[in-house]
Amino acid sequence: MPTDAYLRDFGCGLGAAFVTTSITFPINKLIYRQVLGDGRLKNAFESIRKEGPFYLYRGCLPPLLQKTVSITTMFGVNNSAMIALKRYNMNEYLEKISASAASGTLEAGFMPFERVQVLLVHAKYNKRFRNMFHAFKQLRAQYGLKEYYRGFTIIWMRNICSNSCFFITKSELQKLQIMKDKRVKDSVKNFCSGGLLGLIMSTLFYPMKVMKIFAHEKIGGPHYSVFKTAAAVYKQNGGGLKNFYPGVAMNGVRSLLSWGITNMVFEFLKNVA
């Protein structure tokens, strides 16, 4: 991909990430509190309310930075990989999955931001870590660089699966007649398609998010494998599959808004750039 096109995608990703994260962060924080607590929306909301508005956007900077780089990588690297793979005359879906694997793997390299975000939104760490930079410094000094990448495999698997799902489904949606209907504004179509994809992906891969939060909430000690993490999540709070879905309804609402806004803003900025 030409440099100017890549820079354009970076700028579009920056704008989309900033708008999306700023609007949906409080909802995302509520979801994290459900997962980190007893799973009840009422209790999660009450814990945030008691902390007051000062702490509402605590932990917002890591996902803002991570989303900026992640969205840029997701779209920019995926498009570059698709262009490079064209020469091999691969199957259309295998090509999309391969490109998604490339972008998802690179995205996983920026997971320290997600790692620190979990610590900053957790109430028990409000006094231990002042901000993102302090958290990074403390983790590095006390546990080493490896602590930044606790739960890496879970995030890597999630990225590849969700990216493949996103680009394949988006391509199929674009083939539908409603997406070609000129009477429907592009911004509405982009919001609806992005929101629908976000809702599907967030629900389908939500157990991975719960496992990620479970892994990231820990500081120090052994690094569990994906299977050990899944087993630990299953056994907590009395055991059962319900442990993989606390906050899933609110997450669906957040993802619908988040991906709808992201897709709409990204495509809008890309068209006017």
Rank of each mutant, 00 (worst) to 15 (best):
G59T: 07
A215I: 06
G221Y: 05
S103I: 05
N79V: 03
F205S: 05
F205G: 06
N159F: 08
L241C: 12
Y6P: 01
K175E: 10
K209L: 10
V35S: 12
Y55Q: 10
E172R: 07
Y32K: 12
K185A: 12
G260M: 01
N271Q: 15
A44P: 08
G39P: 07
L196K: 08
S258A: 10
R150F: 06
I155A: 07
L56G: 09
N91S: 14
D9F: 02
V265D: 03
L241Q: 10
K182C: 01
L173G: 02
I213H: 11
Y206P: 11
V272C: 03
E107F: 02
I154V: 13
G260K: 04
G109F: 09
I23C: 05
V118G: 07
A249T: 12
R128H: 12
H134R: 10
K212M: 12
S100Y: 00
I261D: 02
L7K: 13
A249W: 09
Y234P: 09
Q66M: 10
N79M: 04
I200D: 03
W156M: 10
G37K: 14
C165P: 00
A5E: 13
I160L: 10
L41I: 10
A102E: 00
A101Q: 05
V188Q: 03
L196D: 01
V253K: 08
S70F: 05
L56F: 13
I48A: 11
Y149S: 07
T24K: 08
A141N: 14
F268M: 08
D4S: 15
P112V: 09
N251M: 01
N251I: 00
A141E: 14
N237I: 05
Q142A: 14
E95K: 13
Q177D: 14
R115H: 09
S171K: 09
A135K: 15
A84W: 08
L176E: 07
T73S: 09
I168D: 02
A84S: 14
F227T: 14
